[in-house]
């Protein structure tokens, strides 16, 4: 088994606002191996994106702060680096793709210029080496006729192509870890399928590790080797993808899978999870999923469950499973 590249340990990221403390990430741990795709799946405001920003230390200051935990990348705790040292990791070692291809490119620069900027910033390349580097990044993302596309501007391209360019920028510095935050949510179904297949191919070629953030269990199944299911700032279940889909254990995971309609058979009636996720400013005592859980007992209301490994690589935070 390949070695662990990134290990997040008991990470707590809080936002200190005028109205109170928002516990966006409240003690999560996971790791990503080299060449592996780890999925973080959950609904909006469950802490997925904040986790990503915490790894890159790009939280909106001063409200957002990492109050506890470790982020160990290849043996170095990123949280102990000073700002300048941290900058050296961004882009070169760890890169990120954001959700919206419409806004993550600068509309006034050509595609070539935008990738070249990333290339120049990260490698101290002589000028004549920049363009081949840019073109190889475009080739890696299978962007057709890269030489002609260099001079084009974002508005001349479709959403799918733009997201490939965003991918090319992220990959141009040859990072070892890529964080992809809902990169396909804004894309059409067939384009999404293209993009996911493309990324699997990129991973095979470069052996890059990927943290894939999404709300879509279908995308997780397709893309990830292992998955962490997040709910209200915690990872409630971690397992390999096959294991998670075959034998989900946490009531939240089970409920989520039952509440998504299936394409391969007609559902009689979907299970619907009652209520809505709790406010991260005012979390219920005990298990966070307790108010919406259909199998909750008294202990769930009073005490927070801790994570227990029930089989190799499969951990669950639920009193009912322990």
């Amino acid at each position: 088994m390949s070695k662990v590249l990134l290990e997040v340990e008991d990470l707590h990221t809080f936002f200190f606002t005028r109205r109170g403390v928002v516990k966006a990430v409240d003690g999560i741990s996971f790791y990503v191996r080299e060449g592996e795709t780890f999925g973080l799946v959950g609904e909006s405001a469950c802490g997925k994106t904040v986790t990503a920003l915490s790894i890159l230390r790009l939280l909106p200051e001063p409200a957002g702060r990492i109050v506890a935990g470790k982020v160990v990348f290849d043996g170095t705790n990123l949280l102990e680096l000073d700002k300048k040292e941290m900058r050296a990791y961004r882009g070169r070692e760890i890169s990120m793709i954001l959700q919206d291809p419409m806004t993550s490119l600068n509309p006034v620069y050509s595609i070539g210029d935008q990738i070249a900027e990333a290339v120049r910033m990260r490698h101290d390349l002589p000028d004549n080496m920049v363009e081949p580097e840019v073109i190889s990044a475009l080739r890696l993302l299978k962007i057709p006729s890269p030489e002609t596309i260099l001079g084009e501007y974002p508005f001349q391209m479709s959403g799918g192509m733009r997201q490939r360019v965003v991918g090319a920028i992220a990959m141009s510095c040859r990072p070892r870890l890529l964080i992809a935050d809902e990169p396909t949510t804004a894309l059409d179904a067939t384009i999404q399928a293209q993009y996911l297949a493309l990324f699997k191919d990129v991973q095979k070629k470069t052996n890059i590790s990927i943290i894939f953030i999404t709300h879509d269990f279908g995308v997780v199944a397709n893309m990830c080797h292992r998955v962490g299911v997040m709910y209200a700032g915690k990872i409630v279940e971690t397992a390999t993808t096959s294991e998670l889909f075959k034998a989900p254990k946490h009531p939240y995971t089970v409920a989520m899978m039952d509440s998504v309609p299936r394409l391969d058979h007609k559902d009689k009636r979907l299970y619907s999870i009652k209520g809505q996720p709790p406010s991260l400013m005012n979390l219920p005592p005990g298990c966070r999923f307790y108010p919406r859980c259909s199998v909750a007992t008294d202990v769930c209301r009073k005490r927070e469950p801790h994570q227990v490994e029930i089989s190799d690589g499969h951990s669950v935070s639920c009193w009912r499973v322990q």
């Binding site: 609904e43 909006s44 709300h215 879509d216 269990f217 409920a255 989520m256 509440s259 998504v260 309609p261 009636r269 979907l270 299970y271 619907s272 999870i273 009652k274 809505q276 996720p277 919406r292």
Partner: peptide, 13 residues
């Protein structure tokens, strides 16, 4: 949100 979709779909049905 994914967990809310089923509620609305069932309501509509």
């Amino acid at each position: 949100d994914v967990s809310i979709r089923a509620q609305i779909m069932n309501l509509l049905k």
